[in-house]
Amino acid sequence: MDDQNRHDPFGDDDLLEDIAAFEPKKSGREKTRPQEEEVEKIAQARGFDNRAPVSKPVKEALRPLQFRLPASEVEAFHQRAYEEFGMSHGAKISLFRKMWKVYLASLA
């Protein structure tokens, strides 16, 4: 793919001459300046508006939750998480969150 950009040493390279041949605009484009309101109306119809760039939500820092339980309970928890959410990395977190929501709802 690089070959297409390869300099051709046998060709005439008059790029700088071509660049220098351009001249500044003699008159401004005031005469042909489009109506800003119309430009905006068309742009808004295409979904271009004055919205600010979407800022990323600030992520809350994560902290580990560690405690010990009887091995059989831990095993049962893992088993249930995998059954319900699949063998994925977030299965145990998803089960914990589900249980936590149920718990919070029970308090309300």
Binding site: P24, K25, G28, E30, A43, N50
Partner: peptide, 27 residues
């Protein structure tokens, strides 16, 4: 318009959003 009076080439780099400034620039 001001830049066109001073320079031979004017290059406008816009923000990566779909905003009205991009629309004005292209027109």
């Amino acid at each position: 318009e001001d830049a066109e009076r001073k320079a031979v080439f004017v290059i406008v780099d816009t923000e990566g959003v779909a905003d009205l400034r991009a629309a004005h620039t292209m027109s």
